[in-house]
């Protein structure tokens, strides 16, 4: 017997955008796996390709973008090249998504109940009454008070936090095996953020749903994820267990990100920052994309670093790891 197939296995995924000014390699040779019930944090700056990775998985890349090569396997089933009908059946049913801005994701002219019920009936023959009851229960589960009344509301009658709860409820409706959450707390207040993360975490534990949590916020991911992938300029530059990566970052970029998180231990001291800004994906520097911002930069970096495994369960794309690897 082979090992159980992971819920999602992404291998050498390349998603390019063919624009008038050139080919944008938004996602370049990205590989990762998510096991059942696992929480994977995908961390990176804006424009690093996190969101495109998420949309690639569910096959929602629009023109001029295209998945060029690679493989995305859901429980061993290849999704790249799958029929549109098959993908539709997987979207929202087996793999659900939560978006960044809750004020934009719900259709403004449809009532909440319509938007929940349709998500159920799109994937099963559930009758309207049962679907409505399931919707009501789903709202209750994400901590929305008096869900029956809320179901009759239009999105604009709810606050941002409430709307994101509704979006989460929709994502969990069909008990998917994987949820891709694309910066779901970025647009929310800190207090609401904590509640939303808590709701998502609890539901995932309860239902055994795997979670791909896309964010630029290391602090959020530190407490939530089992493992972390750090993305830079379309590539995953470092991967490992969450605590491991945060305590002992290997890639200079990860170290820079962690160093730039404000903390009360360093009160009054100058906040560390990564010099420069994200390079344009249209003309990335040759070799390591982080080269131009890296203080360890030398001639070896002109070549593209391959993935290495400096320790068990750690992978890295860098010639000059920051520390000597994790202590045993």
């Amino acid at each position: 017997m082979s090992a159980p197939k992971p819920t999602l296995a992404v291998e050498d995924l390349c998603t390019y955008f063919f624009t008038k000014s050139g080919v944008v390699k938004a996602v370049d040779k990205v590989s990762f796996e998510i096991g059942a019930g696992e929480v994977l944090g995908l961390v990176g700056e804006s424009g690093s390709g996190k969101t495109v990775t998420g949309f690639s998985i569910v096959g929602l890349i629009d023109q001029p973008g295209r998945i060029v090569s690679g493989s995305i396997r859901y429980k061993g089933e290849e999704l790249i090249g799958a029929s549109e009908e098959r993908l539709r059946h997987i979207r929202g049913n087996r793999i659900a998504m939560i978006f960044q801005d809750p004020t934009m994701t719900l259709n403004p002219v449809l009532r909440i109940d319509t938007q929940l019920v349709e998500a159920i009936t799109a994937h099963s023959d559930t009758d309207a009454r049962t679907a409505w009851e399931q919707s009501r229960d789903a709202l209750g589960q994400v901590g929305i008070p008096s869900p029956e009344e809320r179901l009759k509301c239009y999105p604009h009658e709810l606050s941002g936090g409430m709307r994101q709860r509704v979006a989460i409820a929709i994502a969990f409706l069909n008990k998917p095996n994987l949820i891709i959450a694309d910066e779901p707390t970025t647009a929310l207040d800190v207090t609401i953020q904590a509640q939303i993360i808590y709701e998502a975490q609890t539901l995932c534990r309860k239902t055994g749903t795997a979670l791909l949590w896309i964010t630029h916020d290391l602090a959020v991911v530190a407490g939530l994820a089992d493992r972390i992938c750090v993305m830079y300029a379309g590539r995953i530059v470092e991967e490992g267990g969450a605590d491991n990566v945060i305590d002992r970052p290997l890639h200079p970029y990860t170290a820079g990100l962690i160093g730039s998180v404000p903390s009360h231990n360093r009160r009054g001291k100058r906040l560390a920052q990564i010099p420069g800004s994200t390079p344009s994906l249209l003309n990335l520097p040759e070799g390591c994309a982080f080269r131009t911002r890296c203080k360890f930069n030398d001639d070896t970096c002109l070549e593209e670093p391959e993935v290495t495994h400096p320790a068990k369960d750690r992978s890295l794309r860098c010639f000059h790891p920051v520390s000597r690897g994790p202590a045993p």
Partner: peptide
């Protein structure tokens, strides 16, 4: 708009 992309991510039929 995001709400159309979200509707697609819900796996709704194209006609709907």
């Amino acid at each position: 708009q995001d709400y159309i992309k979200f509707a697609r991510a819900k796996g709704l039929r194209q006609s709907r």
